[in-house]
Design a protein around this nucleic acid. Structure first.
Ligand SMILES: [Zn+2]
Ligand SMILES: [Zn+2]
Ligand SMILES: [Zn+2]
Ligand SMILES: [Zn+2]
Lengths: 152, 152
DNA sequence: GGAAAGGATGTTATGTTATAACATCATCAA
DNA sequence: TTGATGATGTTATAACATAACATCCTTTCC
């Protein structure tokens, strides 16, 4: 994400939190910014390392608390299969998304595919299950990396 | 799973491994049996505890190696969102399944829903992504628990 | 301003999940 | 029997996550 876009996203997060009456404190903002600035998902401990550069010796709970807040507000998502976190690309409204995770280059793209959500809902109705949080993560190879393999 | 069914499943796993020319050793068989006998998913360390009862002091790698083998053979599945494992209900053919995970009673049901797989494949084709392993886990409340809440 | 309340953060310790690295043992084929 | 391969044992440590309690900061109300 480039600097301009990053500023926009941060600004949007500020507004969103103000509107909701919750506090995007300095710590929380830092964690969010680090996640958005990274082109790859970051584990809690990676975030911790990057915070050490600026702040003085933060401990794991600092990061996990910030992440809890950001997850609640929908500003970040957790990738269960990677034990890592990514900034959300469109936090304005609550949503369920799906993730394409490339095992080669490590890039992750978030998508919000209606057909997938529909098929999940159909399955739920058939079984009487009430989903609170769907986890959909596709582990594989992205288009760019697949092409490299073919040519390489 | 009742005793008769368990015997069948174990027997089936034996046959499957023989057919594939891989070895379902005592350790691996024990881990598989513990998972199948449990009505809930088990973490690697829960499995370890239950093994301690019989064998003498196994260490984590013992369990993780057995799990790796069983995962490769499709005899068990990993639930990423729970850091836990379940025995597969139909390991005869390779498959991608989805899991309904009840946060109330802890029960997990495995399903193989064609419509969901189709929708995932459609999304892949649209993006050029090649999925090696889809993770679909729905976290929520099962029908029985939902009913209890309503009446309770 | 000062006191009280609630939320956020700091700090220490520990729990939980997973793997690295190397030694030993079992099995099988030549 | 000997060498190759795969499986297991063993020790140590890495990586991920939370409990518990102290302190501080902000807001509100007087
Ligand atoms: Zn999102
Ligand atoms: Zn890639
Ligand atoms: Zn299965
Ligand atoms: Zn339930």
């Amino acid at each position: 994400m480039n600097k301009k876009k990053l500023t926009e996203v941060l600004c949007g997060a500020e507004q969103l939190c103000r509107k909701r009456g919750v506090r995007l404190t300095a710590r929380r903002r830092t964690v969010f910014e680090l996640l958005c600035a990274s082109d790859k998902p970051l584990s809690a401990y990676k975030i911790l390392d990057r915070m050490r550069v600026a702040a003085r010796n933060p401990a794991p709970p600092t990061v996990y608390r910030a992440l809890d807040f950001l997850l609640e507000q929908g500003l970040v998502h957790k990738l269960e299969s990677l034990h890592a976190f990514v900034g959300c690309t469109h936090p304005e409204h609550p949503h369920s998304s799906q993730f394409l995770i490339c095992g080669d280059c490590g890039e992750v793209s978030e998508m919000e595919n209606e057909a997938i959500l529909q098929s999940l809902q159909t399955a739920e109705r058939a079984t009487g299950f009430k989903t609170r949080h769907p986890v959909v993560e596709l582990l594989g190879t992205c288009a760019q990396c697949a092409e490299k393999h073919q040519s390489g």
